[in-house]
């Protein structure tokens, strides 16, 4: 299946949880995640099932005013 990660389509095996997907992506900490534009609290990654076409956004600290 393909999942849109930060706007880019990426291939992943099925089935997939967000926790497993993040293990594969291994984004550097700290980060926070949204699944289909909904925030996913860190403690619920295992329960979040990913389907083809889903959108994952991973955000990091950046400068801001």
């Amino acid at each position: 299946m393909f999942v849109i990660v930060n706007g880019q389509p990426c291939p992943f095996p099925e089935p997939m949880t967000l926790a497993a997907l993040l293990v594969l992506l291994s984004p550097p900490a700290p980060f926070a995640v949204a699944h289909n534009e909904e925030f996913v609290p860190r403690g619920t990654y295992e329960m979040c099932c990913i389907s083809t076409g889903d959108r994952i956004d991973i955000v990091h600290p950046t400068a801001g005013g």
Binding site: N6, D57, V59, H60, P61, T62, G64
Partner: peptide, 13 residues
């Protein structure tokens, strides 16, 4: 501070 998606060209995150 703010938060943004990592740019594909960025190595720092």
């Amino acid at each position: 501070v703010s938060l943004r998606r990592q740019l594909s060209s960025s190595k720092d995150s």
